[in-house]
Design a protein around this nucleic acid. Structure first.
Lengths: 226, 226
DNA sequence: GTTTTTTGTGAAGACATGTTGAAGAGAAAA
DNA sequence: TTTTCTCTTCAACATGTCTTCACAAAAAAC
């Protein structure tokens, strides 16, 4: 049975979350401020923490920071504030998901389930993504971020590797420049579309005999075709 | 404009919800029991239902069950009872959100908005878009933008592909040149109608044995007939 | 059957897009 | 700070694509 820690200063919110969580078979502990939450984490083990940002004594971000120092427990943040800034800031601290108030219990539960599943599959030795991907003589070692061409290791810059990996992950799917930019560079990148072209060029050159795996789709973008 | 159905036996509650909803730009229909609500749902379309649990004739849970059989309308439940049992049951029946009385109208409105947004994005972002469309030996791979004729891949220019895809998407529908132009080329295209004819010609040639799927409708335009 | 209207087709110029090398800006490492 | 590596932008070039046009062919109207 999974153990959840629910941290919020509003009793009503805690109660709703607790009831839904218990219905879903989770064991719930409540805490009403960040300080208490940190203390509880020192002494007990939890599988997941659902925590509000705005709290007395110790806010959610600070509490998150402290907890992450002690143990690697997945954290879902609650917030009434929708500003992007919070999200970014939070994610850097290792937050696993983010739910904006008012949320529906159903949605929250779905996220809890997703985060737990993600964490478990990562911890257990049954990864969804294989260690390596092979396409003829092109081998991508994911854990090591190493790419070999006919057994020979090739040098790729970080962006080149990310681009290759993304293309391969979505092989046989036409990917627009827009999508590539927002998914690899991030939605906050406001540069030129054509940057991709240059990286594609460099990547193709690096792939040598396998350069043709990367297919241009005129008027759209690129795809990895196998 | 969104249409809400408010179901509660207390006129005062209905009135409050109606007032706030209309202020927020929603169109509201009232019903005072579950039986009436089910009847209304059979005959009308609503975007969201706000329903009390405790009602005469047919309680909220039973009504919810009945309505879900008919149509997939998001439902927000109201309840004065905080017992677990209520929530559990509701959860299983596919309730989208849950508000405990006494609630603040502001909170309820926020939830209405959230549920509507979620439902809409879910509906629009996950339509039944098959991976492939087949018409005899003509296969269109949508994700990869690849068209094969009797297993053989054919080369299509961007416009040719877009045109084919649009025709197929609207198969058996007569499409005027005007409509084709504005929907494929964009409303800001001020060129010649006859441009389409040339593309149709090229597309037909590319389709080889399946060229006759594209039918000319004299005086109007073209259609994909299957 | 002839004329008129509409569509089919091939060719060619105009246009748009992708490729590429180079260079400077920027970030990371020394 | 300096050096090195990476990323981004730019512009010239090559190539592919689109649009237009003129005429042929077909269908409809007279």
């Amino acid at each position: 049975m999974y153990r959840l820690l629910v941290v919020d200063d509003e009793a009503k919110i805690r109660e709703v979350i607790k009831e839904y969580s218990e219905f879903n078979g989770y064991d719930v502990t409540e805490a009403e401020d960040g300080m208490t939450a940190v203390g509880l984490c020192k002494l007990n083990d939890y599988d997941l923490i659902i925590m509000d940002i705005m709290m007395p004594k110790l806010d959610g971000f600070s509490a998150c920071k402290e907890i992450k120092k002690i143990k690697d427990i997945p954290i879902i943040m609650l917030s009434a504030r929708t500003e992007e800034y919070d999200k970014l800031f939070g994610f850097e601290l290792g937050i696993d998901d983010y739910v904006v108030k008012p949320f529906s219990p159903k949605e929250l539960m779905a996220r809890v389930q997703a985060v737990l599943a993600r964490h478990n599959s990562a911890a257990s030795s049954a990864p969804e993504t294989p260690e390596e991907m092979e396409f003829g003589g092109l081998v991508i070692n994911i854990a090591g971020r190493i790419v070999t061409v006919d057994g020979e290791k090739i040098d790729l810059t970080p962006k080149e590797y990310d681009l290759l990996f993304y293309l391969v992950e979505n092989k046989n799917i036409a990917l627009s420049r827009d999508k590539l930019l927002s998914d690899i560079w991030g939605y906050d990148f406001f540069g030129d579309d054509r940057t991709i072209d240059t990286h594609i060029k460099n990547l193709r050159n690096a792939l040598g005999p396998y350069r043709d795996y990367i297919v241009t789709i005129r008027g759209v973008g690129y795809k990895f075709e196998i």
